[in-house]
Design a protein around this nucleic acid. Structure first.
Lengths: 170, 170
DNA sequence: CTTGGAAAGTCAACAAGGCTGACTTAAAAT
DNA sequence: ATTTTAAGTCAGCCTTGTTGACTTTCCAAG
């Protein structure tokens, strides 16, 4: 890791020269790390008969309580039918509440119930604990670099969502 | 990004204090970045009627020519039946060649054919080009941090695979 | 030399979670 | 009054994962 960083050569004009080999390592790092990233929540979800799709819905409803279905669709990047299937089970199981909009009654605003918040806690505790361990192991400068590269890797539309969350969140 | 990095406070003893909010941002960064990471190859795969599972197989056969089915299984973390379905189509389509082992004739050693190497090139060109752009945008120190955090996030078994590749690769 | 176990392959059946297309209902907007 | 938008639903399809059962081939240890 340290050696490979040393291999990213800067030319005179400050342009970065990256070998295919270094890029391939980055690609594989993403692949293997993402597996770790999802492993812990996956175990919890399986116990309760849910999948990653449920996790994603729960995560973003928790983060933006009262979000509309349409908004959630554009964040998750799936079809209405696909999201609806997941949302249906979460509502039926009493983890998510769907309230009719006050100003625009066509909209449904989504909230986690107490039980939903509980599951969200369990899931994000598991995921954060791995993230925290990785951050601690790598150090604060590495964390800054990690986020910079990831942000640069996003599609512009998705980055919009990510950044919008930053304003609201931080 | 820069501001948030500044928020990772170091205590007197050098321990890192990370707020749930910072960790949540890291989690969402992984989510959105992974979407970008797979977007370009996904488009190429779709044209040819393949999926991500085919990409993964092609990637690791390219990287370790002559690898056995068992080895591939442990890297990909799927069942024999699941891999076999994908491998079957790749062999039938003439992208992968399966040769009976010389020392142990039970084993099959997997190689990409010329057509397979061609597709691999197209896929990894697309993926590398995004990775290269992200690396350039973020700079060499960020890249080192990126890889450090990702490596720390892997499951130990998967990290073994990742590191083994490093020796062979770099 | 036989027997046990490993590597690979296959068949069948199932589930999650994507997708498209078509259609309804209610409400907002024009 | 008409059109558009938000949401929901039904039906059907695909990919990619799963389990379980079973075969063939072959290495290796008793």
């Amino acid at each position: 890791m340290a050696e490979s960083a040393a291999k990213t050569i800067m030319s005179g004009e400050g342009r970065l020269f990256l070998t295919d080999e270094q890029l391939r390592k980055g690609i594989e790092a993403m692949f293997f790390a993402y597996r770790g990233f999802t492993a812990d929540p996956d175990r919890i979800l399986e116990e309760r008969g849910y999948g990653r799709a449920h996790h994603r819905a729960i995560h973003f409803i928790h983060r933006s309580p009262g979000t509309t279905v349409n908004n959630l669709l554009s964040i998750l990047g799936v079809t209405k039918q696909s999201l609806n299937r997941v949302l249906r089970t979460l509502i039926d199981d009493g983890l998510v509440e769907s309230r009719i909009g006050t100003s625009d009654k066509r909209e449904r605003h989504l909230y986690l119930t107490e039980a939903g918040e509980e599951l969200e806690q369990a899931l994000s505790d598991a995921q954060r604990s791995r993230m925290r361990a990785a951050y601690r192991a790598a150090g604060p400068e590495a964390v800054a670099g990690f986020r910079q590269v990831l942000e640069a890797m996003m599609d512009p539309d998705l980055r919009r969502h990510y950044s919008a969350l930053r304003e609201a969140g931080q």
